[in-house]
Structures are given as C-alpha cells and as structure tokens.
Amino acid sequence: MEAGGDVFHMLFDEWNFWSAIVMIIVSVWLFHHSLKYRAKDGKSMGESCDEFIPGVFPKENDNLKMELTWTIVPFILIVYLTYIAWGPLDEMWSADPDAHEIGVTANQWFWDFDCMADDPEDAETIGQQNVAYNDDGEVICEISTIDVEGETKPLLRVKAEQSLAFIMTSNDVTHAPFFLDWGIKEDTQPGMETRLYYTPSVDEVGSSLLMCTEYCGKQHSTMTAVVEVFA
C-alpha cells in the first residue's frame, strides 16, 4: 500500500501539474533573461540600461499591462485550485449519521482504541469495547495487540466499506494519530473532542502504520499502532 489516500493523490497530481508549469515558465524566463541580457565582457552597457548615480532615484521601469497580467493570471489559477481543493472538504468534514464511532484516546505514549457500544447514547454500555458488530452480526471493529519486531503494539481492525467516525481526545498533551495509508490525521487535545471521518475501500484491505504526528515528548517517535482493514 502507498502512503496517502485517494483524495490526497488526486489533489497531489493536480498540484504537481500546475507547479511544473509555473516552474517551467520561471526557469525558462530566468535562464533566457540571465543569459541573453548578460554583459558579455562583464562591463558593457546595453542601450536600454539605466544610468545609476548614487543619490539619484533612477528612471522608472514599469509596464502596467504586464504587471496586471501577472497579478490576474496567477489569481485565476489560485481561484481554480481553491475550487478543486474545496470539494473534498465537504466529504471530510460532514458527519455521516450511519458512521460507526471508534474512540481514540491518546496518552503519553500509547494509543487507546475503543470500538464503542452500539448505542453510544446508552450510558450503560459505554466502556471499553474490544469488538463491535453491525446489524447483520458481522464484526466491524476489533481491537487487540500485535507483535512487531518484538514489540507489542495496539492493533485496530476495521471492516472495509464501513463508514467510520473517530472520536478522539487526549489524556495529557496534544497528540495526533496519522493513518498513513489513508493520508489523514487530526490532533487529539485534552479536554476537547476532535473527529475524523473515513470509509476505507476494499482496495485498502491490508495493514498500515499509525504514527503520532504532533510532538508529545520523550517517546513521541515510538507512539505507533497498526491499523488493519479487512474485507
């Protein structure tokens, strides 16, 4: 699996395309002008050179049309890019009422997952749940541990095509789970609830890494977990 989700790669390719165009324009311009308009013998002055005398504000050198061009054209490009970047926001930020909620609690320096009760409104059933089922009785979320190179790490298993809502908080300082292959992350804050929404597709079946990506102290870099999507 590759790092970054579909949305990321879609936007990334688009941005690369426009970046390349801008960079080509700038480089060609730069090389052309800096070579064509160089002082061949290191001294001589072209006829359109301006005479500089210390203390004398030089002749103006401008061209309103050109300046407006490179104000307006980049502006249009920006508007276009903003428009593209806007789309995925709705999807990312709007809550799906049918999403299955998964609790994520960050601690210095380990992750706590919670598959949550079927009915989060029902206080009786809240408490750490290691497994959750959908209406058909299939497992949609399961929590256990896994051995990675001799170290025990939390393992979160979720069902593909199941819409998920991560309800996140922290017990101490700021952390941020980074779902590497999905290309999403969000800080967990103490005393605050943050959310992430995601629906893994069947193409994403397999395991990937979850890291902490908000600096949280001594063992920040080993605050990892494994996320597995099963069909």
């Binding site: 790092a3 990321f8 936007l11 990334f12 970046s19 999403i184």
Partner: peptide
Amino acid sequence: LGFLVTFTLGGISGMYFPAVAMDLHLHET
C-alpha cells in the same frame, strides 16, 4: 539567481498546504 530558483520552489511547495485535504497527509511530515 540561485535564490530565485530555490525560493520559487519553496513558494510552490508552500502552495500544497492550503489545500486542506492535502495538508491532512502532509502536515508534520
């Protein structure tokens, strides 16, 4: 002239972050 090249590259890579959906992947990497 070197500045023009590197700064433009830095400016362009900066344009990847305001696209929030992309920043979610790139942030803190």
